[in-house]
Computed example of a mutant assay.
Amino acid sequence: MRRLAIVFVVALLAACSSAPKEEASRPSTAALPAEPLADVDPDVVPRAYAGIVVDARTGQILYQEAARSLRYPASLTKMMTLYLLFEQLDAGRLTPASPLSVSEEAASRPPAKLGVKAGTAITVDTAARALAVRSANDVAVVIAENLAGSEENFARAMTAKARSLGMARTNFVNASGLPDPLQYTTAQDMAILGKALSESFPRWFGYFQTEKISYNGRTWRNTNKLLGKVPGVEGIKTGYIRDSGFNLVTSVRRGGKHIIAVVIGGRTGASRNKKMEELIETYMPKASGGGIGSLFGMEAAAHVSLLR
């Protein structure tokens, strides 16, 4: 695990220092702090609604409400955990069959969890499915520790990656989304992350469509109840803690159109899902191949300028 963690950190720094010239405007992740951002309001509004719908082909914002206000991500956090795992898969440093060791710290995490035992190992494939389907907090720590040596180091890498993607108002301190006042995001930042996942990892994005996972004699179905119910939905991730309410990021493709929609702060899982369905049906017809108000069709530095 230590060797893989060293490789992960070295690779992250190398990627920052050897970027091609045309990407020179992207912020360097090597020097970014893990501390909360100093240039944003630290007051996160608990259990308050925020939402956004973006045309994923053009970046045009089709709908937004409180989209730049700070919220708690809850298990939407695991989207970034998986982003960093998918990077390792794409780079060939891991394969789906690669083993990830389980520590006592990881095994001790509260539910939702897969129930992994300290001293054992699970495959990368099992870990990815556990996050996408079960939203397993114990497995999030397994990934963090194996890739970066500790969850604290991994959280720094998560925040650095967020900055490089243009997520200017997001801060991570853990890999799972378990409650922490210093872990926050916005609906707009989550849309950026959802778009990045669907664009950057076509080979691995299917994990978010996994219907169920079985482990040690137990089976769990995907927490995203819109999969298989709403036409075109292909993931991405649900989330809930008491202070966030019910969250959901969704990627939808229909008839050559593609949108990313985010709902944060639902009062119940059912009301969150209903709101998401309403957003999909209202704004999917308005998605097109062109337009202004682009959120994503710029370099990351331009994203940061737009979001401030």
Rank of each mutant, 00 (worst) to 15 (best):
A19V: 13
V173M: 09
P99S: 01
V53Y: 09
T81D: 06
K161H: 03
T159C: 04
P36R: 13
S103N: 06
N222K: 08
A5T: 07
R3G: 09
E105N: 11
D180P: 02
Y184E: 05
A187F: 00
R203T: 14
Y63I: 04
F86V: 08
D189M: 02
G255K: 02
P231A: 11
A175T: 05
A67M: 00
A5D: 11
G119W: 07
E151R: 11
G290L: 04
P179E: 09
L70P: 06
G115D: 09
L76G: 00
E22W: 08
D39E: 12
A191W: 08
L89W: 07
A132M: 14
A38T: 15
E22S: 08
K237C: 03
G177I: 08
F296I: 15
G293F: 04
P20C: 02
Q188R: 13
Q183F: 03
K275H: 13
I213V: 15
E299L: 10
A56G: 04
D55Q: 07
T81S: 12
Y207G: 05
D43I: 09
L76S: 01
K229P: 01
R253Q: 12
Q188M: 13
V124M: 12
A19H: 05
G245R: 00
R93F: 10
Y63A: 13
L182N: 13
V263Q: 13
T81G: 05
D39F: 11
A196I: 02
A50T: 10
F172V: 04
N174K: 12
P179K: 06
A30D: 08
A128G: 10
M80Q: 13
R129K: 15
L193F: 05
S198A: 15
A50Q: 13
A127M: 11
V142F: 07
R242C: 03
S25G: 15
T238Q: 02
G115V: 01
R3L: 12
Y72Q: 10
T186H: 02
I241A: 05
I241K: 01
I259T: 04
A91N: 06
I292C: 12
L295M: 15
A196K: 00
L94T: 04
E152G: 10
A106F: 11
P285M: 10
S101Q: 10
F172K: 00
